[in-house]
Structure formats: structure tokens, C-alpha cells
Simulated scan of single mutants.
Amino acid sequence: MSTTIWPPAPPSSLLSEQCSALSRELTWLLRTLHDQLPSLKATLESCHTLLSSDTPSTLALSSQRSEALKGFVVRTGARVVKGDVQLRLPSLPPPRGQNGYKLTLSGLPTAPALVLGQLVRGRECVGAALDVVDATAWTGDAGDAGFIDGQLRLLYYNIREAEKALKGGEEAWNEEGLDEKGCAGELLRVLVASKNNMYNRQIFDPPLPQNISFHLSIAEAALVLHIRTLEPVQVTGTSTPSSFATTSSFSGFGLRDRLAVALGGTRTPLHDEANDVFAWRGQDVRVREKVRVESQDPSLMAAMAKLRALGHSVARWRRALDVVLGKEEEDSDEG
């Protein structure tokens, strides 16, 4: 903003004219921001609807260039209410008479819900952003620059947190994955009322085998499923009992790879976690095979795009207010 005044003011009144111009600029900016609140609220309500709609969304799951994993899940809001996955993995032999190993979410009314914690978090942040908009519109002084500045900071934080929840990232699958209760990570203590339900409320029917990790998460507004087959780490000189089934001799490697190893060659890792050891339900395990499948969710993609656009708009409003208030030299927390 320029503070040049034409015609030129006398030096004695220049400072007064500059302050008057800044005051008028601040009044106009605050009024403009207040007029934008209804539009902002409507967009946030649209995002909240996309994240909490009861309309079922069926998402196909299929591994690329292989038959390792085929199936589907049905998402309703933050809950996965139905799912059927067929696995064909060398380390997971199918039951006799079947072509693959089938994982099915239980349809019993007593079965626990498979809840996606990231969507719960995103929905909560959008709800908090709506509360900030209402507080800005109906409480406080719309002409108080300090109040509006604080509200914009809080609004920006909640929008960014909601976007981060849909963007996702690397998760500790062995800590945040499903357990026997079917709950996801941080929601465990909320969704399970009693420790007595720990082992009799299983989400899969039949129950998920002990040597399979089923990890469902959100990444870049897509539903991502990781299936891992596990084996206990054998400690030399000990005979530690294992709860894993050991009837299968499948190693996950083809004949050519096993022959090369027998002749002194090195075994090539089949995935990025092949050489790592993880703590899993009280024991150390290795990942024998790992399959990753993702399915784009149109509702989540739309919500993420809206949140990203809102974040940019609020960031511009904050920068404009900082300039008028003379805080353009301060560090920004937009990163």
C-alpha cells in the first residue's frame, strides 16, 4: 500500500495523513473480511458434509500387474462398514479347495466398527473451523484488528490440520493398525468401553490370522490398504514360543531366487521393510511379504481441494492484515 499523498501535504501534517489513510485501509479490510465469512462458512460446511456423509462409497482395491490382492471396501463417513479382500500370496497359502485367502469384515451387529482416525480428525478440525467462523461473525468486535487477527490465525490452523489429516503420511503400522477390537490407533480408548471386550469383539469373520497385519489409512485423499504377512524373529540359541502358525514352508521367493541363495548368492529384498524388525503384539517380527493398494476417493479428493483453497484464501487475508498492521517483517507460520 502506498502512503504517498497528492497533492503533497505539508511536513507538519504528513504523519497525521498517513495514519488516517492506514486507519481507513484497516476499516475497509476488516469490513471486507467480515463480508467473506458467509462464503467461507458455506465451503466449510460442504467439506464437513463430504467427510461425514452417510451415503455409502464403494471403493475397489486391486494390486497392479498382479493378482496378489483383489477386493473392495464400503466407506460411510469415517467408518468402513463392509469389506471383502482376496489374497494370493506365496507366504499365505489358501485353505484347501480355495484359490485365495479371503478376509471379510464381519457383518454382525455386535462387531466393532473399523474407524479411520484420520477422517475423524479431519472432521473435528473442520468443525472447529466452523466454530471459529461463527465466533468471528457473532461475538467480539468486528472492528477490532487484534481480535480478527487472532481469529484468522486459529482458523488457518484448523484448516491446515484438516488438510494434513487427508494428506496423511507415514504411519507406524505396528502401533496404529487394527487390533482384535477393530479400532484404529488413537480411537482405541474412546471406542472400547471395557477391557473384557478385547478378544471377543473381532472385526473380521473369520478372525484375522495372527500372522497378518491389515492396515487401512488415508494418504493424499485416497484410501490405502497395506497387507503384511509376518514371521517371528528367531533368536539363536533360544526356543521362544510363537503364536504364529508355522505349518507353511512358503518363503515368498521363487525357485530361481532360492536356488541362487543355495549357491551362495544374496537374496534380493522384495519390499522396503524386508530387513527391518518390528514389535508386534508382544514379540519381534519381520515382514515376509507386503502389498500396498490405494483407491482414490472422490469425496475425500473434493474435500481436500476445498480445504487447500480455503487455506490459501485465509493465508492471503492474514498477509494483508499483517501489512496494514505493519507486521510484514514478521515470520509467517504458513509452512
Rank of each mutant, 00 (worst) to 15 (best):
A245E: 00
P207R: 11
A142D: 10
I212P: 00
R123S: 05
I218Y: 03
E124S: 06
F214S: 09
F244R: 03
R160A: 14
K195H: 07
N197S: 10
E161P: 08
D134M: 08
C183I: 13
V133I: 11
G254S: 06
G185Y: 04
A221V: 14
T139Y: 10
P207F: 02
A193L: 10
R189Q: 15
T240P: 00
R153C: 09
Q118N: 00
S243K: 09
E231S: 13
V133A: 09
A193T: 15
G252M: 03
R121M: 06
R160V: 11
A222V: 06
N174K: 05
R153V: 12
A128Y: 03
D205A: 12
T238K: 01
V233M: 07
E161T: 13
H226I: 13
D205V: 02
N200D: 13
G143T: 14
Q151H: 06
V233T: 05
E186V: 14
A219H: 06
T229C: 02
V235M: 03
K164P: 05
E175H: 11
P206T: 12
F253E: 02
S217E: 05
V192E: 00
E163L: 15
T238C: 04
E220D: 15
D134G: 06
E231K: 14
W138E: 08
V133H: 01
R256D: 01
I159W: 04
A222L: 08
G169D: 10
T229D: 10
A145E: 08
S239T: 03
G150D: 12
D149C: 12
L216N: 06
A128T: 10
A172Q: 14
A221G: 12
A193S: 14
G252E: 01
N211C: 15
E170V: 12
A137P: 06
A165I: 03
A245N: 02
L152M: 13
A219C: 13
I148Q: 05
P209L: 15
L230I: 08
S213A: 15
G169M: 11
S242N: 04
L230K: 09
S243V: 14
S194C: 09
I227T: 15
R123A: 05
I212Y: 00
G185F: 07
E231M: 13
A162P: 08
F253C: 02
T246K: 11
A222H: 09
N174M: 11
S243H: 07
